[in-house]
């Protein structure tokens, strides 16, 4: 297990809670999430659709404070020694884009349709690094080439709607990487990419990690990608961390039934019927008091439904939120 003293920890999230507005009132959708990402580490977040991954990411980026429909209700987000949640908007802006940058899950809504992509990539270079217009432009072209946009010199004058879905995603990556951030949060950055291009993007991210010790939070539902580039991984279920640990260990020996289920959903043999975890995850405001996975869990016992399960740290650096963890022997993949 890696040593986690503050010199090597790039980001530490402590007991983060986020509420969202529902017609019935506020509902907690991210609950007590804690994470630590080391310098030079790629940390994968996985979990079913709607489990709170994007909201966690946005909270870390300090993007939830302005919204009427979501609010951070507790926790700390420490980048180095600074608690990002306590910063004023003005101080936060100095960090956003420079020290921490994000690739959003929705490329079209986070790129501004009214500006060319060169303007958008160049903006933060000019703002944070004080580059001239011309320098910023040259750097933008370089970045576009790095993310594999052909004919970048000409295409940098195009507007976002003139790019294909996958290209927009790569433009977003270029925007995020523009100032070589210390922490990159990539929210499903490769969903629209075919495997060959995806491999290039993963390579690009990895090279920045190796060269500059960038820390990365990589949100994805693709366990293949997790296995490929992440060092550690945290599994979300219904807004809670239910398991975390080194990628290899989690995949080989999951200790939470939900992780086992996720791994089992990976098609192994094309002739086997598709498999999935029956039922669907609780939606905001519909969570029960006991273990949240219990209604879908094949190992569930009575006690699971009544007692909230704490996240327990085991000696080997794994964290598991399952009351039965010690008694179960679960199947991983290898």
């Amino acid at each position: 297990m890696t040593v986690q003293d503050s010199a090597t920890t790039a980001l530490r999230v402590k007991e983060l809670c986020v509420d969202v507005a529902t017609p019935e009132g506020w509902a907690t959708v991210v609950e007590d999430v804690s994470l630590a990402v080391d310098v030079g580490e790629i940390h994968g977040l996985v979990g079913e659709s709607g489990s709170g991954k994007s909201l966690t990411a946005m909270a870390i980026m300090g993007l939830i404070t302005h919204s009427q429909s979501a609010r951070v209700t507790g926790g700390e987000v420490l980048l180095g020694d600074v608690d990002l949640l306590k910063l004023s908007n003005r101080d936060l802006r100095r960090h956003q884009g420079k020290d921490l940058a994000m690739v959003f899950q929705e490329p079209m809504t986070s790129l501004n349709p009214a500006f060319t992509v060169a303007d958008q990539i160049g903006e933060s270079i000019r703002y944070h690094l004080g580059a001239s217009r011309k320098e910023a432009r040259e750097r933008s072209i370089e970045l576009l080439e790095e993310v594999g946009i052909a004919d970048a010199r000409r295409r940098c004058n195009d507007y976002p709607h003139q790019f294909s879905g996958g290209m927009r995603q790569r433009v977003m990556l270029a925007v995020a990487l523009a100032c070589e951030p210390r922490l990159l949060i990539a929210d499903e950055p490769t969903t629209a990419l075919d495997v060959t291009v995806q491999a290039q993007m993963l390579e690009l991210i990895r090279s920045l990690v190796e060269r500059h010790g960038m820390a990365v939070i990589f949100i994805t539902h693709d366990l293949g990608v997790i296995a490929e580039i992440c060092d550690r991984t945290t599994v979300f279920y219904a807004g809670q961390v239910i398991e975390s640990g080194l990628v290899g260990e989690v995949i080989k020996g999951p200790r939470h039934p939900y992780t086992e289920g996720l791994l089992r959903s990976v098609p192994a043999d094309d002739d086997l019927p598709l498999w999935w975890i029956d039922g669907s995850p609780p939606l905001p405001g519909q969570v029960s008091s006991g273990c949240r996975f219990s209604p879908r869990c094949e190992y569930s016992k009575n006690e699971c439904d009544t007692h909230a399960v704490p996240l327990r740290l085991s000696a080997d650096g794994r964290a598991i939120r399952c009351a039965l963890a010690d008694d179960l022997s679960l199947n991983g993949r290898d």
Partner: peptide, 18 residues
């Protein structure tokens, strides 16, 4: 379907595909 399941986790993906 233009990339209908690429934003989904595998479990949901499998449900939708079936």
């Amino acid at each position: 379907c233009d990339e209908p399941v690429s934003a989904l986790d595998l479990s949901t993906q499998n449900q939708i595909i079936s």
